[in-house]
């Protein structure tokens, strides 16, 4: 073994764990999916004279942007949680993750509320506008929901102590969150674009 110098250089290595790479692949393909859906939005938009179509209100800006702010605000605790994790400070890690979780869950709850509100005014089956509006937002928020499940799972694991495996998971999941946040920004701005 020593012939390879394995062990010495190994743990201090600057390169990312395998799990992070796996998450990167997942993010790459999911980002492409959302990019394709965003492209669909603009393709349909340029095929239509009236966008949104008559009878459908132009989205309002303030509330959705504030709600988005909640999600973005969760970036900081996630980041701090990773730092704490690297320093093997378990309580701090869990604490920061819970803060993030609350913000993210609040975001999702408000989004659901927004859907309910929108659905009373226009349906996905009303026009192509409605179809892509709900599909695009729904796809982005589904990623948030998955992220919530991942964080919950990680918290449950971390509650029983820190291991290398859990730290790798923390790196991977935090990377997932950064990506989802960025994607959600793009998606939100896209669906708000008629009001911009």
């Amino acid at each position: 073994m020593s012939a390879y110098g394995i062990g010495a250089a190994a743990r201090g290595g600057r390169e990312r764990p395998l799990g992070w790479w796996g998450a990167a692949m997942l993010v790459a393909t999911e980002a492409t999916l959302l990019a394709v859906m965003t492209a669909t939005y603009f393709y349909l938009r340029f095929k239509n004279v009236a966008w949104p179509p008559r009878g459908v209100p132009v989205p309002t800006l303030v509330v959705p942007l504030l709600v988005l702010g909640l999600l973005l605000a969760a970036t900081t605790p996630v980041c701090l949680g990773v730092r704490a994790g690297r320093a093997r400070r378990r309580a701090a890690t869990c604490g920061w993750l819970i803060v993030a979780l609350v913000l993210q869950a609040a975001y999702l709850a408000l989004q659901l509320h927004q859907y309910a509100h929108d659905l009373r005014r226009f349906a996905p089956s009303g026009s192509a506008y409605g179809s892509i509006y709900y599909t695009l937002l729904g796809a982005a928020d589904a990623h948030v929901a998955v992220g919530l499940l991942l964080t919950l799972w990680l918290l449950a694991k971390l509650a029983r102590g820190i291991t290398r495996y859990r730290l790798n998971a923390l790196e991977a999941i935090s990377f997932y969150w950064y990506a989802v946040n960025a994607l959600t920004v793009v998606v939100t701005l896209t669906v708000l674009s008629p009001a911009l």
């Binding site: 349909l44 095929k47 996905p124 089956s125 026009s127 192509a128 179809s131 599909t135």
Partner: peptide, 17 residues
């Protein structure tokens, strides 16, 4: 979704393409 939920992604009569 077009087939089962009634969306209109591909239906030019309702703004689809």
């Amino acid at each position: 979704l077009d087939r089962n939920v009634g969306t209109h992604f591909f239906d030019p009569a309702h703004g689809g393409a």
